[in-house]
Design a protein around this nucleic acid. Sequence first.
DNA 1: TCGCAAACTTAACCTGTGTGAATGTCTGGT
DNA 2: ACCAGACATTCACACAGGTTAAGTTTGCGA
Lengths: 260, 260
Amino acid sequence: MDRQSSAALSEPSAASSDVADGRLDNFTRKLLSHSLLSTDDQRAILTLPFSLRLLGPNEYILREGEQARVCPLLLSGFAYRHKLVADGGRQIVALKIPGDPLDFQSLYLRRVDHNLQALTAVELAVVPLAALEKMAMERPAFARAVITDILVEASIGREWLVNIGRRNATARLAHFLCELVYRLNQTASPPADESDVPLTQEQLADLLGLTPVHINRTLKRLEEAGAVRRKGRRLKVADFAMLCRIADFSDLYLHRGNVG
Amino acid sequence: MDRQSSAALSEPSAASSDVADGRLDNFTRKLLSHSLLSTDDQRAILTLPFSLRLLGPNEYILREGEQARVCPLLLSGFAYRHKLVADGGRQIVALKIPGDPLDFQSLYLRRVDHNLQALTAVELAVVPLAALEKMAMERPAFARAVITDILVEASIGREWLVNIGRRNATARLAHFLCELVYRLNQTASPPADESDVPLTQEQLADLLGLTPVHINRTLKRLEEAGAVRRKGRRLKVADFAMLCRIADFSDLYLHRGNVG
DNA sequence: TCGCAAACTTAACCTGTGTGAATGTCTGGT
DNA sequence: ACCAGACATTCACACAGGTTAAGTTTGCGA
């Protein structure tokens, strides 16, 4: 239970500064999933200044109460937002996948209200907030995309509320898996072995408001039903359609066709 | 259980158009709770064009799937966002109090992803999206305030996730009451009888991911402890400090001092 | 290759919350 | 002043999911 791992993100100080092309492709693609951007805008985004940062699993990216002056973009790997409660419990409140911006919020709010932690090993493109502000100023479509991204994340949060508040363990787990597949199918650069779920059972529990033991039971049932497959510690989605049925899944809240 | 009440909000068509001064005070004050606005900006906001709309309890303001072309501001009364799930359950995902804007989201997202319903009788100032867009264009501080408002609502949503996912019924209810008092104490125009809770037990249940019966039990316990008082159907907060203790409440997530 | 920690699995038992149903009590409209 | 419908209250019982506590497997680092 290595939850307290270290290495918070500091300023763009002494970091290896890569302006390597192509690293921000993921990010651009993510924005395009809900926003319109001219090819000129897209090119401009690719030239955003950033420093590359590599973090191991469980390292903290941002801590509650901090003031951030940079915005990390998740180039590869997974990360999540979470909050801790008095009795030691924790709730994961958002899962971020490759391509996702991790902290647009700090452009507007002074203090971070949650923790942001690497789930797997991650590559981050750390962009100074000033550069984002400048680009938002000069390019209205980019500014719009930023806000849209914030709103889509908020919408996902609302659906999670419904999931945790009103669905039983089976439907809840199935719903999360559906969302994950949907989201991965539009931004992950390597669709490699798409339906692989990168979370441990304990993390799934923290995400779904359940206990690890009950996640295990539920997973077992989903596997018996054929909706899911497990080999060793790897969890895979086996029958997406079945999961959608179990979860009564609808993708409206992901706002995919927003600009289509 | 009059959940299916009617009267969705249409366009600013045939509505009584009031430019009456002072009606948008609440709204300005709400923005000021998290954003800086020059007196000039504030004056400008008060001149936003709107039509006044009165709705009764339970009337729908917005429905999932719609495309909105106006943004209602909640002048008086309470409203809430909610989503329904297959088996008939429903989850309230946000509670809006006087002064709150109800749908900034539609400035950026094409389709509404949840239902918005009046909790009590409400007065709405219905502002055309175009007017908001214009003002955001001309006044960067206003644009900033809009986004900040969106972000604060998202932050509240994350705290609700923690609440529902990780706290037991007592702490959960207490936490919600703390939040309500906090929020009312900064924007409600008449602090009249401040700690009055305008929700039925069924609504509290839908908000907290519990059942009405269990809300009743929990309320009873909170009353015995002296944290809450009830006369007839009215629920009041009696001991705010005690509630905070029970809930392990911290107000960081409300971002009050954001610009202080 | 071994050893060890993290992750997973399973079982037995417990409890907080859900269910269903009956009854009581407000409150606004006539 | 009354009535009807909406709310609230209570009870007895059921069960989903939590708790505790062993195990077992997996995979990584020495």
